[in-house]
Design a binder for these strands. Structure first.
Lengths: 188, 188
DNA sequence: TGGGTCATGTAACCTGTTACATGATTAG
DNA sequence: CTAATCATGTAACAGGTTACATGACCCA
């Protein structure tokens, strides 16, 4: 259950409200694990019931009250257990509706498939550019939280993201060429 | 709901039983979408209720009876709708427990993280080798089903798989070097 | 006066995972 | 005799998605 452990990981740095956790999550772990706001609230609830978190109500004036979560000893233990024990399935990451559709696209026209791949390629380009800028954001955070050691690992994951989208872009480019060649063959 | 559409896609080639669909799925679409056997049976049930499939009981002697599914016109329509309409989220494929763990590994020793990355690297190597052989299997299937046009797209997805695992392998190799350099720096 | 931010969620539904159950046939 | 293959699932639970609800404050 990686979402829970991701939240534990964030709470280890600093106690936080669900609202803020949701935002931090989206700008950090969210790059390789998506979660809805409502799901985060639900998981926090469950984790408190299971004794991984404590919460404290903070009364505010002029603003809605907020509920701040802190990690407990049991939560720390659980986080460490997860960090140090690896299960066989966590490596396998390929899960793609895009590839599934392409696999089943033999009946579509070459032109339509080229269009599809071009959309994919453009999306990859945007995501790759985003990853290029991740380095600067990580630097900022490293200074703000004064944790250079962690930031080193954040950068490694950002590198992965960059390499990933670069690979996708290259694959898409060469694949589009293959389809275009097929059209040319037909016309000659 | 890509699993349903994947099953529709397989049933378009040939009517099949849940048992056989489960096996075909695991050797084709399963490379980029995992599904449990029990889930496949459940989805087939739902799809029949929704009118996307018809089923026929085939009585056998000496073997359990089997239930053969065939795609209906409504199912065909739904498959085409899915194939031709693209939604923004289907591109974003990155979802990785491995990266999440690495992101949160700042408190672990360099040695332990190197060990973790080496395990990852070795897994990637195995999966990459598997993708190299996919070409031959696809060729076989293309002949068996006499559908060269579809096989072309199957190969494109296998190429993606190969490129993906190659990229992961390269990233892991360079990342392990980075960590090893860090250890050497400390010792000097 | 309308939209954004702050801050919380609930309810319903869909999808994915795990564990279990049955029972015959066939190959080693 | 044992394990694999054939062939079907159910039940319970966990995790993910979508839609909806509330209400004040601040800025343009």
């Amino acid at each position: 259950m990686p979402l829970k452990h991701g939240l534990l990981g964030l709470l280890k740095y600093k106690s936080e409200t669900g609202y803020n956790l949701d935002k931090s999550f989206k700008y950090s772990l969210g790059f390789f694990w998506k979660a809805q706001t409502s799901q985060i609230y639900r998981e926090l609830n469950k984790m408190e019931k299971d004794g991984w978190l404590d919460s404290e109500m903070i009364i505010q004036v002029g603003k809605p009250n907020k509920k701040q979560y802190a990690i407990t000893d049991a939560g720390q233990e659980e986080l460490n257990r997860w960090l140090h024990n690896h299960e066989s399935m966590e490596w396998i990451t390929l899960r793609s509706e895009f590839l599934m559709k392409l696999f089943l696209s033999g009946d579509k026209s070459l032109e339509e498939n080229i269009e599809y791949l071009k959309q994919y390629r453009d999306t990859c380009k945007v995501l790759m550019k985003g990853m290029e800028q991740a380095g600067a954001i990580i630097e900022e955070q490293a200074v703000a939280l004064n944790d250079k050691e962690s930031a080193f690992y954040w950068e490694l994951t950002a590198d992965y993201g960059f390499d990933h989208y670069t690979m996708c872009l290259n694959w898409a480019t060469k694949t589009i060429k293959k389809l275009e060649d097929k059209i040319n063959e037909k016309n000659n």
